[in-house]
Design a protein around this nucleic acid. Structure first.
Lengths: 375, 375
DNA sequence: ATAGTTTGTACAAACGTTTGAGCAAATATG
DNA sequence: CATATTTGCTCAAACGTTTGTACAAACTAT
């Protein structure tokens, strides 16, 4: 670990041997390097200043006031700490105090733009609160998710923020007996744990109603993974809106995965049906990309020949031709809120653990055509 | 921290009080919960089994073979460890062994798709090697970057992978005296440290030559942050290719930031010039998005009225109309290699620390028009 | 039977902190 | 001047590991 340093010292020693005449000067060099090499601890500071380790500790923790420490001692200790660039050993601190100030984050992915933004927002908020985040990736794989939890626990994280994968709540059911857990985006309705998600149901209702209001009757919906709770809610919203408008007969629900390929294939199939949909509601950004590809293949123009609405916001959707109308979730806010809830609970056992649904927003662009009612 | 558990126990006690008659049954419940509550340590296992802490430690570390431990002891200890769900306390281990098996990652952002993919690849590779990654975000801010380093050091990371921001190498110059450092994507040419980047220079040459071979003479280049080394290399490549074809007079280099806005504004300005470029080379994905927006504003059709090539790959570029020709970097491989180099160096002081440039690839789509030479 | 070897285990120190308790010396109070 | 209080500090234990050393007991060889 300190290889470079050792190398440097060994070089210094070589120089020393080769230059015995200039001993004094060399010693300065060696002293400097040694300062760096000698990782400062309370003990080294204690030895240098002549104060006990406990006094040094209290001074460096700013307890000089409450613990009656002389100004002289404070000054000497602070000076030495600065000189040797002291930084406390978190490991020892944590071991002693039983607080690591680390929180674990489990996400299914970190490249998917939605979760990328989520992780960015969590990392930054966690840091703001003086904690450190360790983010682990489950890859939508329950076994992997379990291994993430194990890894985080052995690092003694004080709490976990998770967008769980799979439908079996067992892991988290046990986990929440050990440390505080907050879900984000996804959650298990069976577990009465705090979560922050967006109102997927209403977002989906709004999208569908918008299409209906624009004259669409045959609206197909391409869903992602059916076990995902947000997906379920979106599907519910779609079906509800269709039913409410007496269009339940026309509802077409296909798809089984949040992927470009799923969007692509399902669109191909939709286009070969007897009754072609006039609008497609893609339940994720990736699915929408697949839809767009398939429509291009068929030479259909979005916003003219067929309409498209996508769930999830992504800056690139504004650069498509035409720009894609979509439902956006307050991703950043979700991350920040989840972090806040978790840390509040860590620091205060009695803090409330709410279950929040933030509102989604329709971002209107040009991918929805208005169909005039046939008279 | 153990609030939920305490609550559960307290509930259990309530039940106990209320049901003294069914004592036996209740005790089982309490025992179960207590098992969970009592965080297993070497000491607890030692007490339960009657073997000393050292024996327990050796057994659980698989040293029973080399340390002559009886099969009986191994069995008893393993059984108890399983029963109480023992998991070693990493903090104590690390404190004792001076190895944390944590590596720090410093990236300028984690939402930018390039770095999102990078972080995903690093996190996964780090985990494969049995380590844990802590990723910190510098937000392209040198002060923040310094605070990231401090945070990581206090967590006693064993090495750092960084895509540094800013142009001052001081921080990393000092850092590399303390722990191994590997740069990824960006690096400081003044520091002789290992890095993994892609051949930005050749990628840029190739892109420019392709445009020239397609008959373009007025090729504008929109750069990102001029202090960024990859940016510099790309600019060099562009200029080199232009010069080599005797087009140095035609070279137009604008821009100063990797952002959508920069791409947008610079394109607006380019279009208002006396000599309009027939092709634009955007040095990043975000810049390309801005370019596309500006071109749409002006009613110019990409691939017909004007050509566009972008640096960086992004799946959404295939869904633009037309799909955008681009230079792709092996992002995932860069992350994996950097991780491998770092961990090899951590585990083996004498491991080599190479400086790698992976090759870029041209992904040909439909955004480049062939201009026939005027005779 | 004696000496030598092997086997199985325990002891104790160390890693760097934090923190309650203790204790002289200095100061204040009567 | 004797007693009480305050001041400024130190001691020592503890957190959960790892690991070098020590040491009986059980064998083996003579």
């Amino acid at each position: 670990m300190y290889a470079c340093l050792r190398r440097k010292i060994s070089i210094a020693e070589d120089i020393l041997c080769a230059n015995l005449l200039h001993g004094a000067q060399i010693f300065v060099l060696l002293a400097e390097i040694t300062t760096l090499a000698m990782k400062a601890t309370l003990t080294t500071i204690s030895e240098k200043t002549g104060y006990s380790v406990s006094t040094v500790s209290r001074v460096l923790n700013g307890k000089s006031g409450t613990c009656r420490i002389s100004a002289k001692a404070v000054e000497a200790i602070m000076a030495e700490a600065r000189r040797c660039n002291y930084s406390p050993n978190s490991l020892a601190q944590s071991l002693r105090t039983n607080k690591t100030r680390i929180i674990g984050v489990i996400l299914p992915s970190v490249t998917n733009p939605f979760f990328a933004e989520m992780s960015g927002s969590i990392i930054s908020e966690v840091k703001n609160r003086g904690y450190t985040a360790i983010v682990a990736v489950s890859m939508e794989n329950e076994a992997e998710q379990e291994s993430c939890v194990a890894a985080l626990l052995s690092k003694k994280v004080e709490g976990i923020i998770a967008a769980p994968c799979g439908s079996n709540p067992r892991l988290f059911e046990e986990l929440c007996n050990v440390i505080p857990v907050v879900f984000v985006d996804r959650f298990y309705s069976g577990l009465n744990l705090p979560y922050v998600t967006s109102n997927n149901y209403m977002g989906s209702v709004n999208a569908t109603v918008m299409l209906i209001n624009n004259g669409h009757r045959n609206i197909a919906c391409i869903q992602g993974s059916p076990v995902s709770l947000p997906n379920k809610k979106r599907v519910e919203g779609y079906l509800k809106a269709m039913r409410q408008s007496g269009l339940e007969e026309n509802a077409v629900l296909v798809g089984d995965e949040f992927s470009v390929q799923c969007g692509y294939l399902e669109t191909k199939l939709l286009l070969s049906r007897d009754v072609r949909p006039t609008a497609i509601f893609a339940l994720s950004y990736t699915i929408a990309l697949g839809v767009m590809k398939a429509l291009q293949d068929s030479g259909l123009k979005i916003g003219e020949d067929i309409s498209l609405v996508s769930f999830d916001d992504n800056v690139s959707l504004d650069y498509m031709v035409p720009a894609i109308t979509r439902i956006s979730q307050p991703v950043e806010e979700m991350g920040k809120l989840a972090t806040k809830i978790l840390i509040d609970r860590i620091e205060n056992d009695t803090a409330k653990s709410p279950q929040l649904e933030l509102t989604t927003k329709v971002i209107v662009r040009e991918s929805v055509r208005t169909i005039l009612p046939a008279l």
